[in-house]
Write a protein that binds this DNA or RNA. Structure first.
Lengths: 162, 162
DNA sequence: CAGTATCAGTTGAGTGTTCAACCAAACCGA
DNA sequence: TCGGTTTGGTTGAACACTCAACTGATACTG
């Protein structure tokens, strides 16, 4: 039996491989986006998710759920994006608590300019090294982990800009 | 043929699943470590890697390579760890450029206290949801990605304290 | 309806990370 | 041995994230 309080060598290696892979991938993407568009990855994601939504707008709470961000983080981020003129805050007409974040035309333009390079980077690092079959198995494994990490979550939205 | 400038739906979903999984896992571990030991995950890793090294000491450059950190980040981190009394900086006797980071007894004690809870969290989130076979396939995929992300790197060290 | 709880979102302080600039020691070539 | 380069490492400013505290608006409950 394996000692539940420790990791055996294969687990150990798997764990570190996962850690380094996710770190390196995130850093590569962050660097690419920062260099080519001056956007951190988290900010790019906010613009991307807004662009896919009806009216290019979402309430802060919806947006926070979609980009997996804390309310606080999102609020700070939208402050920056608003200063840059890429997002606009609008009050909800029926519920005066909620504020709506809306992608501006300038924001859409920045996103459109950044997207191809970003997608290319994702493809290069994540999909080029994997066969289709391997990719699909990888996806299943990730879904299993997600189900455990985040039991009560809806399926994420989908389209190619991510 | 697939358009190389865009992601199809399966790729899209794989990519986002990877993103959320790594984010959620990292956040879970960071929260657990912060709560139980007051250590960010990156700092825990520094202590852990030092503890596995001969003499519980490494040069800054070696340490940076092992924990996949930039020199700057490591230097700032070691500043904090030194203030806390968990690490000590020593000058290298033969090469006066290099400085050696050495784990103190207090640092080892903190690590020893933090390790079991951390390992349990890793196990809970990463290994419990996966069959052994699935885990091993997962590892192979990660190695393929790593090879592409970081072509000229040595094999990481190993032991159960991850 | 009052009173309380909950929801939506923001703020500020503290902390960690990044990036560019910098310094000193060691190496290298003529 | 002198100048340039590389190596090892640090620093400070700018920026992002976390956590706890807070405000206002709405929903529930007796």
């Amino acid at each position: 039996m394996t000692d539940p309080a420790w990791l055996d060598e294969e687990e150990q290696e798997t764990w570190r491989a996962f850690l380094w892979t996710s770190r390196l991938l995130n850093e590569a993407l962050d660097r690419q986006l920062q260099r080519d568009s001056g956007l951190p990855h988290a900010y790019y994601m906010i613009l991307a998710m807004l662009s896919e939504s009806p009216g290019r707008a979402l309430t802060m709470t919806e947006l926070a759920a979609i980009v997996h961000s804390s309310p606080s983080r999102l609020s700070h981020a939208v402050n920056r994006l608003e200063e840059a003129g890429w997002v606009r805050r609008v009050k909800h007409p029926d519920d005066r608590r909620t504020t709506i974040a809306e992608l501006t035309d300038a924001g859409f333009a920045v996103l459109a300019e950044a997207a191809p390079g970003h997608v290319a980077e994702v493809r290069r690092h994540l999909f080029d090294p994997l066969s289709r079959e391997e990719m699909l198995r990888f996806r299943e494994t990730l879904h299993a982990l997600l189900a455990s990490l985040d039991p009560d979550r809806e399926a994420p939205c989908a389209d190619g800009k991510g």
